[in-house]
Nucleic acid binder design. Structure first.
Lengths: 182, 182
DNA sequence: GACTATACGGAGAGTGTCTCCGTTTGGCAA
DNA sequence: TTGCCAAACGGAGACACTCTCCGTATAGTC
Protein backbone atom coordinates (compact mmCIF):
# COMPACT_ATOMS: atom_id res chain seq x y z
CA UNK A 1 0.00 0.00 0.00
CA UNK A 2 1.26 3.45 -0.89
CA UNK A 3 2.39 5.64 2.00
CA UNK A 4 -0.31 8.25 1.44
CA UNK A 5 -2.98 5.56 1.32
CA UNK A 6 -1.73 4.11 4.58
CA UNK A 7 -1.73 7.53 6.19
CA UNK A 8 -5.26 8.32 5.04
CA UNK A 9 -6.50 4.97 6.22
CA UNK A 10 -5.18 5.65 9.70
CA UNK A 11 -6.56 9.16 9.72
CA UNK A 12 -9.98 7.83 8.74
CA UNK A 13 -9.98 5.27 11.53
CA UNK A 14 -9.01 7.89 14.08
CA UNK A 15 -11.64 10.32 12.79
CA UNK A 16 -14.31 7.61 12.81
CA UNK A 17 -13.46 6.71 16.38
CA UNK A 18 -13.97 10.33 17.41
CA UNK A 19 -17.11 10.95 15.40
CA UNK A 20 -18.81 7.70 16.42
CA UNK A 21 -18.02 8.37 20.05
CA UNK A 22 -19.52 11.85 19.80
CA UNK A 23 -22.53 11.15 17.60
CA UNK A 24 -23.16 7.43 17.79
CA UNK A 25 -23.02 4.73 15.18
CA UNK A 26 -25.46 6.55 12.88
CA UNK A 27 -23.18 9.52 12.33
CA UNK A 28 -22.74 10.66 8.74
CA UNK A 29 -19.80 9.08 6.93
CA UNK A 30 -19.23 12.33 5.08
CA UNK A 31 -18.63 13.88 8.49
CA UNK A 32 -15.99 11.23 9.15
CA UNK A 33 -14.30 11.98 5.83
CA UNK A 34 -14.37 15.71 6.53
CA UNK A 35 -12.94 15.22 10.02
CA UNK A 36 -10.15 13.13 8.52
CA UNK A 37 -9.52 15.83 5.92
CA UNK A 38 -10.12 13.54 2.92
CA UNK A 39 -12.78 13.27 0.23
CA UNK A 40 -15.77 10.96 0.45
CA UNK A 41 -14.36 8.85 -2.35
CA UNK A 42 -11.26 8.12 -0.32
CA UNK A 43 -13.34 6.97 2.62
CA UNK A 44 -15.46 4.64 0.48
CA UNK A 45 -12.41 3.24 -1.32
CA UNK A 46 -10.84 2.22 1.98
CA UNK A 47 -14.08 1.19 3.67
CA UNK A 48 -16.83 0.17 1.23
CA UNK A 49 -19.45 0.11 3.97
CA UNK A 50 -20.08 1.44 7.42
CA UNK A 51 -19.62 -2.03 8.88
CA UNK A 52 -16.17 -2.48 7.39
CA UNK A 53 -15.17 0.82 8.96
CA UNK A 54 -16.63 -0.26 12.29
CA UNK A 55 -14.65 -3.45 12.09
CA UNK A 56 -11.43 -1.49 11.55
CA UNK A 57 -11.92 0.88 14.48
CA UNK A 58 -12.47 -2.09 16.73
CA UNK A 59 -9.04 -3.61 16.36
CA UNK A 60 -7.78 -2.37 19.72
CA UNK A 61 -11.06 -3.45 21.21
CA UNK A 62 -10.19 -7.10 20.48
CA UNK A 63 -7.29 -6.91 22.91
CA UNK A 64 -9.58 -5.40 25.47
CA UNK A 65 -12.02 -8.31 25.18
CA UNK A 66 -9.29 -10.84 25.73
CA UNK A 67 -7.86 -8.96 28.67
CA UNK A 68 -11.32 -8.67 30.18
CA UNK A 69 -12.11 -12.37 30.02
CA UNK A 70 -8.68 -13.23 31.47
CA UNK A 71 -9.40 -10.95 34.37
CA UNK A 72 -12.88 -12.35 34.95
CA UNK A 73 -11.65 -15.93 34.88
CA UNK A 74 -8.92 -15.09 37.40
CA UNK A 75 -11.54 -14.30 40.00
CA UNK A 76 -12.20 -17.13 42.43
CA UNK A 77 -15.73 -17.35 43.78
CA UNK A 78 -19.23 -18.69 43.28
CA UNK A 79 -20.20 -19.63 39.71
CA UNK A 80 -23.06 -17.15 39.83
CA UNK A 81 -20.68 -14.30 40.63
CA UNK A 82 -18.34 -15.35 37.85
CA UNK A 83 -21.16 -15.52 35.33
CA UNK A 84 -22.65 -12.18 36.36
CA UNK A 85 -19.25 -10.61 36.32
CA UNK A 86 -18.76 -11.75 32.73
CA UNK A 87 -22.24 -10.60 31.72
CA UNK A 88 -21.61 -7.11 33.03
CA UNK A 89 -18.22 -6.99 31.37
CA UNK A 90 -19.79 -8.23 28.13
CA UNK A 91 -22.43 -5.52 28.19
CA UNK A 92 -19.77 -2.87 28.74
CA UNK A 93 -17.61 -4.24 25.95
CA UNK A 94 -20.33 -4.18 23.30
CA UNK A 95 -21.81 -0.86 24.45
CA UNK A 96 -18.81 1.31 23.63
CA UNK A 97 -20.68 3.00 20.78
CA UNK A 98 -24.35 3.86 20.51
CA UNK A 99 -25.95 1.21 18.29
CA UNK A 100 -23.10 -1.19 18.95
CA UNK A 101 -25.04 -3.81 20.90
CA UNK A 102 -27.63 -4.25 18.15
CA UNK A 103 -24.99 -4.35 15.43
CA UNK A 104 -22.82 -6.90 17.16
CA UNK A 105 -25.59 -9.11 18.46
CA UNK A 106 -27.40 -9.31 15.14
CA UNK A 107 -24.18 -10.38 13.45
CA UNK A 108 -23.58 -13.12 16.01
CA UNK A 109 -23.63 -16.41 14.12
CA UNK A 110 -23.75 -14.77 10.69
CA UNK A 111 -20.71 -16.01 8.78
CA UNK A 112 -21.08 -13.41 6.05
CA UNK A 113 -21.18 -10.38 8.31
CA UNK A 114 -18.41 -7.81 7.83
CA UNK A 115 -17.81 -7.83 11.57
CA UNK A 116 -17.69 -11.60 11.86
CA UNK A 117 -14.18 -11.57 13.31
CA UNK A 118 -15.27 -9.37 16.20
CA UNK A 119 -18.21 -11.63 16.93
CA UNK A 120 -15.90 -14.62 17.00
CA UNK A 121 -13.63 -12.94 19.50
CA UNK A 122 -16.61 -12.35 21.76
CA UNK A 123 -17.98 -15.84 21.24
CA UNK A 124 -14.63 -17.45 22.01
CA UNK A 125 -14.25 -15.38 25.17
CA UNK A 126 -17.73 -16.39 26.24
CA UNK A 127 -16.92 -20.01 25.41
CA UNK A 128 -14.01 -19.86 27.86
CA UNK A 129 -16.44 -18.81 30.58
CA UNK A 130 -18.80 -21.63 29.59
CA UNK A 131 -15.96 -24.16 29.67
CA UNK A 132 -14.90 -23.08 33.13
CA UNK A 133 -18.46 -23.33 34.47
CA UNK A 134 -18.96 -26.73 32.86
CA UNK A 135 -15.79 -28.00 34.52
CA UNK A 136 -17.40 -27.06 37.79
CA UNK A 137 -20.70 -28.66 36.67
CA UNK A 138 -22.35 -25.36 37.46
CA UNK A 139 -24.22 -24.98 34.18
CA UNK A 140 -27.41 -26.64 33.00
CA UNK A 141 -27.13 -28.89 29.98
CA UNK A 142 -27.47 -27.62 26.42
CA UNK A 143 -26.32 -24.10 27.22
CA UNK A 144 -24.28 -22.74 24.34
CA UNK A 145 -22.02 -19.71 24.24
CA UNK A 146 -23.87 -18.25 21.28
CA UNK A 147 -27.12 -18.33 23.24
CA UNK A 148 -25.42 -16.52 26.07
CA UNK A 149 -24.21 -13.89 23.65
CA UNK A 150 -27.67 -13.44 22.21
CA UNK A 151 -29.41 -13.17 25.56
CA UNK A 152 -26.92 -10.79 27.10
CA UNK A 153 -26.63 -8.94 23.79
CA UNK A 154 -30.41 -8.57 23.79
CA UNK A 155 -30.31 -7.00 27.22
CA UNK A 156 -27.49 -4.69 26.12
CA UNK A 157 -29.47 -3.70 23.03
CA UNK A 158 -32.51 -2.83 25.08
CA UNK A 159 -30.36 -0.92 27.57
CA UNK A 160 -28.68 0.97 24.74
CA UNK A 161 -31.97 1.89 23.05
CA UNK A 162 -33.78 2.81 26.24
CA UNK A 163 -30.86 4.44 28.05
CA UNK A 164 -31.08 2.07 30.98
CA UNK A 165 -28.44 2.42 33.70
CA UNK A 166 -26.44 -0.39 35.30
CA UNK A 167 -28.89 -0.65 38.19
CA UNK A 168 -31.72 -1.43 35.78
CA UNK A 169 -29.62 -3.87 33.76
CA UNK A 170 -28.36 -5.89 36.71
CA UNK A 171 -31.63 -7.69 37.59
CA UNK A 172 -32.11 -8.63 33.94
CA UNK A 173 -28.68 -10.23 33.86
CA UNK A 174 -29.47 -12.03 37.10
CA UNK A 175 -32.53 -13.64 35.54
CA UNK A 176 -30.44 -14.88 32.64
CA UNK A 177 -27.73 -16.17 34.96
CA UNK A 178 -30.24 -17.98 37.16
CA UNK A 179 -31.83 -19.51 34.08
CA UNK A 180 -28.50 -20.96 33.02
CA UNK A 181 -27.07 -22.18 36.29
CA UNK A 182 -27.78 -25.66 37.57
CA UNK B 1 -62.27 17.31 11.83
CA UNK B 2 -63.35 17.99 8.25
CA UNK B 3 -64.63 15.03 6.28
CA UNK B 4 -61.81 15.11 3.74
CA UNK B 5 -59.22 15.22 6.52
CA UNK B 6 -60.84 12.24 8.19
CA UNK B 7 -60.87 10.33 4.91
CA UNK B 8 -57.23 11.08 4.18
CA UNK B 9 -56.22 10.09 7.67
CA UNK B 10 -57.83 6.70 7.23
CA UNK B 11 -56.33 6.25 3.78
CA UNK B 12 -52.89 7.03 5.18
CA UNK B 13 -53.22 4.49 7.97
CA UNK B 14 -54.32 1.81 5.52
CA UNK B 15 -51.51 2.65 3.11
CA UNK B 16 -48.95 2.64 5.92
CA UNK B 17 -50.14 -0.77 7.06
CA UNK B 18 -49.60 -2.16 3.56
CA UNK B 19 -46.27 -0.48 2.91
CA UNK B 20 -44.80 -1.35 6.31
CA UNK B 21 -45.87 -4.95 5.91
CA UNK B 22 -44.24 -5.14 2.49
CA UNK B 23 -41.08 -3.15 3.15
CA UNK B 24 -40.61 -3.07 6.92
CA UNK B 25 -40.56 -0.26 9.39
CA UNK B 26 -37.90 1.67 7.48
CA UNK B 27 -40.01 2.14 4.37
CA UNK B 28 -40.08 5.64 2.92
CA UNK B 29 -42.90 7.83 4.22
CA UNK B 30 -43.20 9.45 0.80
CA UNK B 31 -44.03 5.97 -0.48
CA UNK B 32 -46.82 5.77 2.09
CA UNK B 33 -48.17 9.16 0.98
CA UNK B 34 -48.03 8.13 -2.66
CA UNK B 35 -49.81 4.84 -1.94
CA UNK B 36 -52.51 6.75 -0.11
CA UNK B 37 -52.81 9.15 -3.04
CA UNK B 38 -52.01 12.26 -1.00
CA UNK B 39 -49.12 14.70 -0.84
CA UNK B 40 -46.25 14.45 1.57
CA UNK B 41 -47.47 17.55 3.39
CA UNK B 42 -50.77 15.89 4.16
CA UNK B 43 -49.00 12.89 5.65
CA UNK B 44 -46.78 15.03 7.87
CA UNK B 45 -49.70 17.22 8.98
CA UNK B 46 -51.59 14.17 10.22
CA UNK B 47 -48.56 12.29 11.53
CA UNK B 48 -45.64 14.55 12.47
CA UNK B 49 -43.30 11.61 12.91
CA UNK B 50 -42.93 7.98 11.92
CA UNK B 51 -43.66 6.91 15.47
CA UNK B 52 -46.97 8.71 15.62
CA UNK B 53 -47.99 6.96 12.42
CA UNK B 54 -46.87 3.61 13.82
CA UNK B 55 -48.96 4.23 16.88
CA UNK B 56 -52.01 4.88 14.73
CA UNK B 57 -51.69 1.74 12.61
CA UNK B 58 -51.46 -0.35 15.76
CA UNK B 59 -54.93 0.36 17.06
CA UNK B 60 -56.35 -2.98 15.99
CA UNK B 61 -53.26 -4.63 17.35
CA UNK B 62 -54.27 -3.60 20.88
CA UNK B 63 -57.30 -5.83 20.67
CA UNK B 64 -55.12 -8.66 19.48
CA UNK B 65 -52.84 -8.32 22.52
CA UNK B 66 -55.75 -8.50 24.90
CA UNK B 67 -57.28 -11.49 23.12
CA UNK B 68 -53.93 -13.24 23.17
CA UNK B 69 -53.35 -12.86 26.90
CA UNK B 70 -56.91 -14.01 27.60
CA UNK B 71 -56.27 -17.12 25.56
CA UNK B 72 -52.93 -17.83 27.24
CA UNK B 73 -54.38 -17.42 30.73
CA UNK B 74 -57.21 -19.81 29.88
CA UNK B 75 -54.71 -22.60 29.43
CA UNK B 76 -54.41 -24.91 32.44
CA UNK B 77 -51.02 -26.47 32.98
CA UNK B 78 -47.62 -26.11 34.53
CA UNK B 79 -46.43 -22.54 35.29
CA UNK B 80 -43.44 -23.03 33.04
CA UNK B 81 -45.68 -23.85 30.08
CA UNK B 82 -47.88 -20.86 30.79
CA UNK B 83 -44.90 -18.53 30.98
CA UNK B 84 -43.28 -19.89 27.84
CA UNK B 85 -46.58 -19.74 26.03
CA UNK B 86 -46.89 -16.04 26.89
CA UNK B 87 -43.27 -15.36 25.93
CA UNK B 88 -43.76 -16.87 22.48
CA UNK B 89 -47.01 -14.99 22.02
CA UNK B 90 -45.31 -11.79 23.15
CA UNK B 91 -42.51 -12.22 20.64
CA UNK B 92 -45.04 -12.77 17.85
CA UNK B 93 -47.07 -9.74 18.88
CA UNK B 94 -44.18 -7.30 18.83
CA UNK B 95 -42.59 -8.78 15.71
CA UNK B 96 -45.38 -7.93 13.28
CA UNK B 97 -43.22 -5.34 11.54
CA UNK B 98 -39.49 -5.39 10.92
CA UNK B 99 -37.90 -3.10 13.50
CA UNK B 100 -40.95 -3.37 15.75
CA UNK B 101 -39.31 -5.25 18.63
CA UNK B 102 -36.55 -2.65 19.05
CA UNK B 103 -39.01 0.21 18.76
CA UNK B 104 -41.45 -1.17 21.29
CA UNK B 105 -38.91 -2.47 23.75
CA UNK B 106 -36.89 0.72 23.85
CA UNK B 107 -40.05 2.71 24.57
CA UNK B 108 -41.00 0.40 27.43
CA UNK B 109 -41.03 2.54 30.56
CA UNK B 110 -40.56 5.82 28.70
CA UNK B 111 -43.53 8.04 29.57
CA UNK B 112 -42.80 10.51 26.80
CA UNK B 113 -42.66 8.01 23.95
CA UNK B 114 -45.21 8.47 21.15
CA UNK B 115 -46.09 4.79 21.44
CA UNK B 116 -46.45 4.81 25.21
CA UNK B 117 -50.06 3.60 25.07
CA UNK B 118 -49.04 0.47 23.16
CA UNK B 119 -46.31 -0.29 25.66
CA UNK B 120 -48.78 0.04 28.49
CA UNK B 121 -51.12 -2.42 26.83
CA UNK B 122 -48.29 -4.93 26.61
CA UNK B 123 -47.10 -4.24 30.13
CA UNK B 124 -50.59 -4.69 31.56
CA UNK B 125 -51.07 -7.94 29.69
CA UNK B 126 -47.74 -9.18 31.02
CA UNK B 127 -48.71 -8.04 34.50
CA UNK B 128 -51.77 -10.30 34.31
CA UNK B 129 -49.48 -13.25 33.62
CA UNK B 130 -47.23 -12.22 36.51
CA UNK B 131 -50.22 -11.91 38.84
CA UNK B 132 -51.46 -15.37 37.93
CA UNK B 133 -48.03 -16.95 38.52
CA UNK B 134 -47.63 -15.12 41.81
CA UNK B 135 -50.98 -16.48 42.97
CA UNK B 136 -49.56 -19.91 42.37
CA UNK B 137 -46.29 -18.90 44.11
CA UNK B 138 -44.49 -20.04 41.00
CA UNK B 139 -42.38 -16.93 40.52
CA UNK B 140 -39.22 -15.84 42.31
CA UNK B 141 -39.44 -12.65 44.33
CA UNK B 142 -38.78 -9.21 42.85
CA UNK B 143 -39.76 -10.18 39.32
CA UNK B 144 -41.50 -7.27 37.64
CA UNK B 145 -43.55 -7.24 34.46
CA UNK B 146 -41.41 -4.52 32.92
CA UNK B 147 -38.32 -6.68 33.37
CA UNK B 148 -40.09 -9.52 31.64
CA UNK B 149 -40.97 -7.21 28.77
CA UNK B 150 -37.39 -6.03 28.47
CA UNK B 151 -35.87 -9.49 28.56
CA UNK B 152 -38.31 -11.04 26.11
CA UNK B 153 -38.24 -7.86 24.03
CA UNK B 154 -34.46 -8.13 23.93
CA UNK B 155 -34.70 -11.65 22.58
CA UNK B 156 -37.28 -10.55 20.01
CA UNK B 157 -35.04 -7.67 18.95
CA UNK B 158 -32.09 -9.98 18.44
CA UNK B 159 -34.27 -12.44 16.56
CA UNK B 160 -35.63 -9.67 14.37
CA UNK B 161 -32.17 -8.27 13.57
CA UNK B 162 -30.53 -11.63 13.00
CA UNK B 163 -33.48 -13.36 11.30
CA UNK B 164 -33.60 -16.12 13.87
CA UNK B 165 -36.40 -18.66 13.52
CA UNK B 166 -38.68 -19.93 16.27
CA UNK B 167 -36.46 -22.93 16.91
CA UNK B 168 -33.52 -20.67 17.73
CA UNK B 169 -35.62 -18.37 19.86
CA UNK B 170 -37.22 -21.06 21.99
CA UNK B 171 -34.15 -22.02 24.07
CA UNK B 172 -33.47 -18.35 24.79
CA UNK B 173 -36.97 -17.93 26.13
CA UNK B 174 -36.53 -21.08 28.20
CA UNK B 175 -33.49 -19.62 29.90
CA UNK B 176 -35.45 -16.51 30.82
CA UNK B 177 -38.38 -18.55 32.07
CA UNK B 178 -36.15 -20.78 34.18
CA UNK B 179 -34.45 -17.70 35.59
CA UNK B 180 -37.78 -16.33 36.74
CA UNK B 181 -39.51 -19.41 38.07
CA UNK B 182 -39.11 -20.49 41.67
C1' DG C 1 13.72 13.40 -14.44
C1' DA C 2 10.13 10.65 -16.64
C1' DC C 3 6.74 7.26 -16.35
C1' DT C 4 2.71 4.91 -14.65
C1' DA C 5 0.08 2.43 -11.36
C1' DT C 6 -2.11 3.93 -7.47
C1' DA C 7 -4.67 7.03 -4.86
C1' DC C 8 -7.05 11.34 -4.27
C1' DG C 9 -11.07 14.62 -4.12
C1' DG C 10 -15.30 16.43 -4.74
C1' DA C 11 -19.13 17.16 -7.92
C1' DG C 12 -23.26 15.09 -8.57
C1' DA C 13 -26.87 11.35 -9.01
C1' DG C 14 -30.03 8.92 -6.26
C1' DT C 15 -32.95 8.66 -2.26
C1' DG C 16 -35.36 10.05 1.83
C1' DT C 17 -37.13 13.66 5.25
C1' DC C 18 -39.74 17.47 6.18
C1' DT C 19 -41.48 22.40 5.25
C1' DC C 20 -43.56 26.15 3.08
C1' DC C 21 -46.93 28.41 0.69
C1' DG C 22 -50.15 29.03 -3.20
C1' DT C 23 -54.42 26.59 -4.23
C1' DT C 24 -58.62 24.13 -3.23
C1' DT C 25 -62.64 22.87 -0.64
C1' DG C 26 -65.89 21.58 3.20
C1' DG C 27 -69.18 23.44 6.04
C1' DC C 28 -71.75 27.21 7.76
C1' DA C 29 -74.39 31.55 7.93
C1' DA C 30 -77.22 34.59 5.58
C1' DT D 1 -78.34 28.99 -3.01
C1' DT D 2 -74.68 31.61 -2.57
C1' DG D 3 -70.60 33.57 -0.59
C1' DC D 4 -67.17 33.29 2.63
C1' DC D 5 -63.05 31.64 4.98
C1' DA D 6 -60.82 28.55 8.07
C1' DA D 7 -59.16 24.22 7.32
C1' DA D 8 -56.93 21.11 4.52
C1' DC D 9 -54.48 19.92 0.43
C1' DG D 10 -50.36 18.94 -2.61
C1' DG D 11 -46.06 18.99 -4.36
C1' DA D 12 -41.99 21.73 -5.32
C1' DG D 13 -37.92 22.24 -3.19
C1' DA D 14 -34.43 22.82 0.69
C1' DC D 15 -31.68 19.93 3.21
C1' DA D 16 -29.18 15.72 4.49
C1' DC D 17 -26.94 11.39 3.62
C1' DT D 18 -24.98 7.62 0.70
C1' DC D 19 -22.19 6.20 -2.81
C1' DT D 20 -19.98 6.59 -7.59
C1' DC D 21 -17.38 8.36 -11.29
C1' DC D 22 -13.69 10.36 -13.44
C1' DG D 23 -10.31 14.08 -14.07
C1' DT D 24 -6.25 15.20 -11.37
C1' DA D 25 -2.27 14.45 -8.43
C1' DT D 26 1.54 11.84 -6.75
C1' DA D 27 4.43 7.93 -4.69
C1' DG D 28 7.54 4.79 -6.05
C1' DT D 29 10.45 2.90 -9.63
C1' DC D 30 13.79 2.79 -13.38
Amino acid sequence: MRADAQRNRERLIEAAREVFREQGYDASLDAVAKRAGVGAGTLYRHFPSRDVLMDAIMQSWVDRVNDAVDKVLLHEGAPRDLLLSWFETYVDLISMHKGGPAKITSAMGDESSPIVTKCQVLARATQRVVDRLEEEHALREHIEAVQMCRLVGGVATVADNADLDRAAVRPLLEVIADGMLA
